[in-house]
C-alpha cells in the first residue's frame, strides 16, 4: 500500500475530509463518511449547514460580563431578571456553564475563566479572566462558587482565586467532589472514593 490512506485523490473531497479531521473526535474514516453523506444530500440542505456554521462566527460573541457565548451582549444569563446576580459560579470553559445549567439547580450567574493556571503551558493569572472576575467583585457579590475542574490545575486555580477573594470579604466555596449519584461504590475509582471519604459530611 502506498500514499496517504486518508486521501482519495479528489481534491474537494480531500479538502473537506482534511477540514473535518481537525474537529475533536473525528478521524479520517469518520470524516470520509460525513463527506459522502453530505454529497448524497440536497444542495439546499448543505447550504443550510454551511450557513449555520458561518453564523457561529458571525453572530456569536463572548459576553462582556461573564465570557459566555451569546448572540447578545450581555448574554441571556447576565441580563436575566430572574437570576441572582450576587452569586457567581466560576468555571473554566463555556461548556461547563451548559453542564451546570442542565441541573436547573443554580440560579446565580457565571464567570468563565477560559482555562486554568498551568505554568508549563504558559498559562498564568494574566492569561485567564481573573482580572475581570475581581472587577466584578467590587459590586454587590455575596458568594463566589469555584467550579473549576477537579484536576491538578483546576484545584490550583481554585486555591489561587480563594487566596485573592477571601481578603476582599466575599464568601468563597468550592464545589464538592465525591461519588456520582446512582453509582456503585465498588466501581468508583480509588481517587474519587478517597476524596469522598475524606470529604464526608456529618449526618
Amino acid at each position: 500500500m502506498s500514499g496517504n490512506r486518508s486521501t482519495v485523490g479528489i481534491p474537494s473531497v480531500d479538502r473537506a475530509v482534511a477540514e473535518l479531521c481537525k474537529l475533536p473526535g473525528i478521524g479520517p474514516r469518520m470524516a470520509q463518511r460525513l463527506v459522502y453523506h453530505i454529497l448524497r444530500r440536497d444542495r439546499s440542505e448543505i447550504e443550510n449547514l454551511s450557513r449555520a456554521l458561518q453564523d457561529l462566527h458571525a453572530k456569536i460573541r463572548r459576553c462582556s460580563i461573564c465570557g459566555y457565548f451569546s448572540e447578545t451582549d450581555p448574554c441571556h444569563i447576565c441580563s436575566s431578571d430572574s437570576r441572582d446576580h450576587c452569586v457567581i459560579c466560576v468555571v473554566e470553559q463555556p461548556q461547563d456553564v451548559f453542564a451546570i445549567e442542565r441541573t436547573n439547580d443554580f440560579h446565580g450567574v457565571y464567570h468563565i475563566l477560559g482555562g486554568a493556571l498551568s505554568p508549563i503551558d504558559g498559562i498564568g493569572p494574566e492569561e485567564i479572566r481573573i482580572r475581570s472576575l475581581l472587577e466584578r467583585l467590587r459590586g454587590d457579590i455575596r458568594e463566589v462558587i469555584l467550579a473549576t475542574n477537579p484536576t491538578l490545575e483546576g484545584d490550583a486555580t481554585a486555591l489561587y482565586l480563594q487566596n485573592l477573594i477571601r481578603p476582599i470579604g466575599v464568601r468563597v466555596s468550592r464545589i464538592a467532589r465525591g461519588l456520582p449519584t446512582g453509582g456503585d461504590l465498588e466501581f468508583a475509582d480509588e481517587t474519587t472514593l478517597a476524596a469522598a471519604l475524606s470529604l464526608r459530611t456529618e449526618m
Binding site: 493556571l117 505554568p119 498564568g124 493569572p125 491538578l152 484545584d155 490550583a156 486555580t157 486555591l159 489561587y160 487566596n163 485573592l164
Partner: peptide
C-alpha cells in the same frame, strides 16, 4: 508571582 508559587507549593 509569589501568590502563584504559593499555590503550587501547596500542590
Amino acid at each position: 508571582e509569589i501568590p502563584q508559587l504559593e499555590v503550587w507549593d501547596r500542590s
